[in-house]
Nucleic acid binder design. Structure first.
Lengths: 231, 231
DNA sequence: TAAATTTGTGACAAAATTGTTACAGGATCA
DNA sequence: TGATCCTGTAACAATTTTGTCACAAATTTA
């Protein structure tokens, strides 16, 4: 599911850092570590991680302070932050949310919990780059400008193909019968041959080009499915 | 980076308003708040905010209702609106887009996401101000002198073409239906054929000349779009 | 393997959409 | 008031899209 996400772990205690790193790597993430806020700043600028796990309490610059700095710079303002804290204190939570923290984890935590929360934040944060645009493996569809593009260059879609693609991109990994597609994409009360769907599928595939054909999969005896996973 | 933008937050729940306000202020925006659509109307007229963040569900007048009202008044028609909604429902999104909503954010959202979307809309909706000229690829429209020029020499535009161009230049990269254009450019309560829009589009294109025709793009089956990007 | 299903493809004519032009009535302005 | 400019419509032309068909290719079934 997309490229490997890189996570920066910031904590002054080495054992904790490593425990987290192991857990994340087992879950398929790539880790970088920093033992101080100073070093973290450097690594963030150099590596542009997809997320920062930040210890609340650290010598010199505190986690909250670092978070504030990240938020205030245009370049780093978009990087999600999860705060690790020993306190269960409500005040601090509120305070943290104000600083633009995306989630909290209270020590001690289980590796599984950490991974779950992390994934949840990534899910919430990543897919929404800008607008309501949907993106799948280089395919972008933006309902606001009403445009679709593959690997940067525009797709030439007829109205029906556009609607079909939009439906698929917002309903992935599920097989639909021709009848269902007619209902959802054409609109309930039209009478058209079921085979018409095949023709439009064909047109959509053609427009998508070689590189993205695989996304529109035929499910024999049933209908079609849109998915990044190979059949 | 330009003057400070003023954002009006309309939501009946104080904690949400404040959460948003803090996030926006950290991002360098100035906030006004309103806990009802009624109050919002007042504040909009008095303060002329640069954007309105609007909760979908509110007692008395709903967000969508308020949005409609803003659109129908000449003075408030071009204030960008972002809708906050708890529903993830496609239907509502479409519905909202038609009512002239500029973007949607589904609760729960992270402060960062909110700021990102907000900036994106502000970028797209560009300097809607009364006093500053807008420029797009050699096309200049100056609201003060009420003139438009392309590559230096003046354009010969009728009043309607001028308003159409102004609307387009301040609402780039977004597809509008003929109905929406009638609402936004002609003003809500006139009855004119949809095809009239096509004729004025044609006149505008003609006036723009070969070099700038490409800016006014037709979105088949939908309407028109103004954008520097090739289709 | 042959027969039967199911899906892929290209062609085509009808239908829908958009571009373009001309024109009559209003509005505007000197 | 007369001339000029603008606007909305209608009519027609150009273009694009759409649904079907007929046939090919692929897959399953017997």
């Amino acid at each position: 599911m997309g490229p490997v996400k890189q996570i920066l772990i910031v904590d002054d205690e080495a054992p904790i850092r490593q425990m987290i790193a192991v857990a994340l790597e087992m879950a398929g993430f790539e880790c970088i570590e920093a033992d101080s806020a100073q070093l973290a700043l450097e690594k963030i600028i150099n590596n542009k991680p997809d997320m920062v796990l930040l210890d609340w309490m650290m010598p010199k610059m505190s986690g909250i302070e670092l978070a504030r700095r990240l938020r205030s710079s245009e370049q780093t303002a978009d990087i999600p932050i999860i705060m690790l804290t020993a306190r269960d204190d409500e005040d601090h939570k509120v305070h943290g949310l104000e600083a633009g923290i995306d989630d909290y984890i209270t020590k001690p935590f289980s590796p599984r919990e950490l991974v779950a929360r992390l994934k949840s934040v990534l899910r919430r944060v990543t897919p929404r780059g800008v607008d309501n645009a949907v993106e799948v493996d280089g395919l972008i569809l933006d309902p606001i400008s009403h445009r679709a593009s593959a690997d940067g260059h525009a797709l030439d879609l007829g109205p029906t193909e556009y609607r079909l693609l939009q439906f698929f991109m917002t309903h992935q990994d599920r097989a639909y019968s021709r009848t269902q597609l007619l209902d959802m994409v054409w609109g309930g009360n039209v009478y058209v041959e079921e085979r018409t769907v095949d023709v439009h599928i064909r047109r959509l595939r053609k427009a998508l080009g070689k590189r993205h054909q695989y996304l529109v999969q035929t499910v024999r005896g049933t209908g079609y499915r849109f998915s990044t996973q190979t059949q």
